[in-house]
Amino acid sequence: MTDVHRPAPAPARPAATREAAPDVTLRAHGVSLGYDGRRVIDGLDLELPAGSVTAIVGPNACGKSTLLRGLARLHPLDGGSVTLGGEDVGALSRKELAKRVGVLPQSSIAPDGVRVAELVARGRYPHQGWFGRHSSTDDGAVLRALEATGVADLADRPVAELSGGQRQRVWIAMVLAQETDIVLLDEPTTYLDLAHQVDLLDLLTELNRTHGTTVVMVLHELNLAARYADHLVVMSAGQVVAEGRPGDVLTAASVHAAFGLRARVVPDPVSGTPLVVPLGRTHDGATT
């Protein structure tokens, strides 16, 4: 393992950091998902490239969170299958899956009084037996996760006393303590202000660049998704309307198709990635 204290923004994934990294390409094959018989997603095919940061965007209720839950086996599939590196996810035991795929759902609860190190240590659950005996391997994983997310100094603090941004880092540390090669995150930036959103996405990018962790996240904020994702998936009404590099995918046409929103797409002056500038009824873009 390389040093995690100073995450070097190495552009390429250092292949030597993982011994024979398993293939973590996540694929949906004709996946159907729904709630109480109401179909949200019908026969969807999707491939999430290993080693990249993928963002899934789309309007409210387009099924993006449901898709992520289906991929993570938090929601039962009505049809189709999900494979991880070619292996059927449904055939794995839950614990086996948790050793390979880390998931941060939206509905996480930090029990009152739980301390940072304790919460992060619970990420070791899939690697432990019934009584959860803590091994030195667990200690190492917890420490690495605390340091990678920059919350090692907070280890002794109750989670409830932290700011929203710190708390979200702690949850990500818990997922990292699972030591999986792929992590799925459901709207990890919700409730964070812009500065903390950027901070969190930087953190996830660093994890991807330094550890080669495959990151798949559902995001609400289009422009941040375009800036941080290597691979962008745009969904609408349970279907993928566009996917690929953000520069190719995010156009005025795709934004209109997915969100029903007229917008101008210009290059982000900082990163060069597409920047969606919405038009509206009161601003039609005539006076630029």
């Binding site: 839950r94 086996e96 880390g102 759902p105 509905s107 619970r122 659950y125």
Partner: peptide, 16 residues
Amino acid sequence: SMLALGDDVASALGQR
């Protein structure tokens, strides 16, 4: 202890 983090987190950590 895992269940206390919510059903989703407990499931994601590999618990039935």
